[in-house]
Design a protein around this nucleic acid. Structure first.
Lengths: 236, 236
DNA sequence: GAAATAGTGTCTATAAGACAGTATTTT
DNA sequence: AAAATACTGTCTTATAGACACTATTTC
């Protein structure tokens, strides 16, 4: 049972990275799916992902960034490790590990591309491998972290208003938030800086102050002392 | 750039599982370290872990359970995936992935064993690979989840009192908790069931009611609506 | 000025914490 | 009874939410 004898007996393990790329559209939270070019499940839509390239990728995060860049053209998303999914059952080619990441981008970042489609995460998706489970895990993580952190800010455009941000939180949490409390908490978190200018929509009402995420929070999250949530449900 | 041509060019990736096994002793939170029997770092103390055995392990979680069982004799711990650590830099043998888990056990479960030692997690540990980072990540996760979940219950003995449980929470959070609030929250979470009997310590004061975790919470956590924490620090 | 949404001041409701009381044990 | 800790009742304080008011825009 020495390491060397083990090394020789070991069946090759398939090492992949998959990315759950999410964005928020008016109709709801959307996940990016790519049409597979190769077997297995050739032609089916699945998560952007692929083999780790040891010569090219310094680590799994770099591999995830590479796949996002090469397959969707997105270069600077909010990206965080989700979990790893592994075992003999998930890939017909054999025992495999997928280190899954989730990425958040503003709706404006996405652009039409052959073989890329966006699906509603609440639709009854039929995805190859265990990608449905990976998507569900990512969505649960996003919704859970929306209860107490600045994570939803990464779904916003570069510049946005507090009412827009509140609507994003409300969509993710599935419930309305008290306006005064919401603004108190955002202020306490001290994650935003005011921006001059106006929203481009010219509408018959007072325009909202615009903000951007402070640069130091572009990859790091801020936690709210007591969260945004109303309900008493557990999560994560 | 077909999958098949990639498959042939791929350098072997080392797939391992490491377990951060934690228990709470009077002197603080302790992590289990095993003396390595093989190179690299032979003789050094490191996290229990090893190669995934595709023929033996249905998935990485099963591999973690196997390693705990075989290397420490612990069969039924609370076990949860922590994160994966990967890259070219972490193992001198080459590009590697470690799917890390953390496990919690009661202090009574641990028993002396050759090559196994317990180290204080707050000591300045020098560990091989990136095991220090893995331990730190696990401890941060445990402390973070202690702010709002039933996770610390898994460090308790089978039967315990509320004052004992409160002391565990206080140790993990590093601050005192209001007794009335603590008991209110534990009651709200509805995770405990009363147990007949007394603590074995015969002392000159009223004995505490004993409880055990309800069976349905042996692997699943319960979240507290608003958490136990006092401070406003973020975490995780 | 009407309509619409942004933003704020303030009172109310709820949850957390302080504190002191009662309860139960051993010596 | 004294001492020690378990447990609980209740008042105070802190936080969240409701609601109404002011502010700013276009038509």
């Amino acid at each position: 049972m020495s390491l060397h004898s083990e090394g020789k007996n070991v069946t090759q393990i398939i090492c992949t990275v998959d990315v759950v790329l999410l964005t928020l559209q008016p109709q709801g939270l959307q996940v990016a799916l790519l049409q597979r070019e190769h077997e297995p499940y050739r032609g089916a839509y699945a998560l952007p992902g692929g083999f780790i390239h040891p010569q090219e990728d310094a680590n799994a995060r770099a591999a995830a960034m590479r796949m996002l860049r090469d397959k969707t053209g997105i270069a600077m998303p909010y990206l965080e490790q989700l979990a790893s999914f592994s075992g003999i059952a998930r890939d017909p080619r054999g025992w495999s590990v997928s280190i899954a990441y989730y990425a958040l981008v503003a709706a404006s970042v996405i652009q039409a591309q052959a073989g890329l489609r966006w699906a509603d995460v609440d639709a009854n998706l039929e995805l190859p491998f265990d990608h449905k489970q990976i998507v569900d895990t990512a969505v649960a993580r996003l919704r859970s972290k929306s209860q107490y952190s600045s994570l939803p800010c990464h779904l916003m455009e570069e510049v946005f208003s507090l009412p827009q941000l509140q609507r994003v939180y409300e969509t993710l949490l599935g419930e309305e938030i008290n306006k005064v409390s919401f603004r108190r908490k955002i202020t306490e978190m001290a994650i935003l800086q005011e921006v001059e200018g106006q929203t481009d929509e010219r509408s018959a009402h007072r325009p909202a102050q615009l903000y951007r995420l402070k640069p130091e929070f572009r990859q790091q999250l801020q936690m709210s002392a007591r969260g945004f949530r109303l309900g008493h449900d557990g999560a994560n």
